[in-house]
Simulated assay, not measured.
Amino acid sequence: MNNLLNGAAVCALTFAFASQAAATEWNASVWGKRRAFTEHVEKIAELVSEKTNGEFTINVSYGGLSKNSDNLDGISIGAFEMAQFCAGYHADKNRAITVLELPFLGVQNLEEEVAVSRAVYAHPAVAKEMAQWNAKMLMTSPMPQYNLVGTGEPRDTLESFDGMRVRATGGLGKAFETVGAVPTSVTSSEAYNAMESGVVDTVAFAQHAHLSFGTINKADWWTANLNPGTVNCPVVVNIDAYEALSDAEKEALDGSVDEALDHYLANYGELLNRWDAVLEEKGVEKVMFTPEVLAEFKSKAADPAREAWIKDMEAQGIPGQELYDLVVKTLEEKRASN
């Protein structure tokens, strides 16, 4: 009897250990704090756990695993299985997707941003470049057009941008350079301190980031309609970790992307709806540029930036013209479908 009981105990323990071993646990590296920008990461973690009865879990870490500018490196060495990063932090590592950061692409809303990002992420040149970092594209983090908050007198002409020190990365930084501004690419987490200490006069962010990183609290004014472009911030997974998933786990992950993005868009829409109330509450003046000023900015920034980017990409063996044309075509198709 004792032998039978001992055998049963061993079997129970063996089953328990096997169940533990079968469970999959991932870590996802993001930064800052939970906010509109990370809601799809939180949602996909929730959905994956639900669909697998807790057998596949994703722990979302806000800065505990890596600096935001090092997340792609962390993915490449398998330090964690999932990460969010922004292309402008290291444009040399993710050249192909920087087409999405070109100024004045004409993207009008978050749904269009999702459409163009998906199209570009699916391009073979992007997959090939990401594979060099052992990374597979999972989903985008769609953001509205960036706008400035600033201190002092409002800047509402291109001439007033001359000498302006602006926190702006990637293509946005280059766009501001064309009108005499001086861009700096401090990370989002450093933007408030840069503004507070006077290192920059202005910060270019989407609305959620101005709230999350506190730059709106230092602002005297906000450019409501400058809309020069945005940054592109993918969520990627480590290829080896993804390939190690079971078919059911892959289905749970891939099959949750659309729902996670829908949740993100709904949540971000609520933030945009209350943005004017935030400005009023904090006493921030809304600056509106005339159509003439906007047209002048676009003529100075958009065409030269696009041509220079395409030429640079083609010289590096990346199909720049093809990627740019893909963005234009996708926008046209998206609008036609509406």
Score class of each variant (00 low, 15 high):
S160C: 02
V199D: 04
M82I: 15
S66P: 01
E153S: 12
A18G: 12
I77V: 15
S66H: 06
N68Y: 15
P144L: 06
S61F: 04
T157C: 11
W26E: 03
V60D: 07
K67I: 05
T187R: 06
Y146I: 03
V231C: 13
Q145D: 11
F104R: 07
P142A: 11
W221D: 02
S189C: 08
A224D: 09
E55P: 05
L226F: 14
E292K: 13
F15V: 13
D201N: 05
A9N: 11
L110R: 14
V166D: 00
K93P: 02
W309N: 02
E112F: 00
F15M: 13
T215I: 03
D92M: 07
Y268R: 10
T184A: 11
S189P: 03
L158V: 11
E111H: 11
S76E: 10
E322D: 10
A83F: 01
A277I: 10
R34Y: 10
N6Q: 13
V237L: 08
E159M: 07
L271A: 02
S49P: 08
V60C: 08
L326V: 12
A9S: 10
N71Q: 05
L326I: 08
L47M: 07
R274Y: 08
G54W: 05
L65M: 11
S29G: 00
V107W: 02
V328N: 09
F15A: 15
V48D: 05
A83I: 02
L138T: 02
S29P: 04
L265F: 02
P304Y: 09
L100I: 05
W275P: 01
R155H: 00
A45I: 03
T169K: 04
L279S: 02
E50Y: 06
D70M: 14
G320A: 11
E81P: 03
A131G: 10
D247G: 04
A115W: 00
T151C: 01
G229T: 05
N267Q: 10
A191T: 10
I310L: 05
A115N: 00
D325W: 03
T140A: 12
T151S: 14
N217P: 01
D276G: 04
V328Y: 02
G255E: 00
G214Q: 10
F56C: 04
Y62E: 06
L323A: 10
T24A: 12
A23K: 13
E332P: 03
V114Q: 06
V327A: 02
Y192Q: 11
P304G: 04
A252S: 12
C11T: 13
N338T: 12
I239H: 01
P304E: 07
E129N: 09
G150I: 01
S76C: 07
P228F: 05
D247S: 14
K174G: 00
K300T: 06
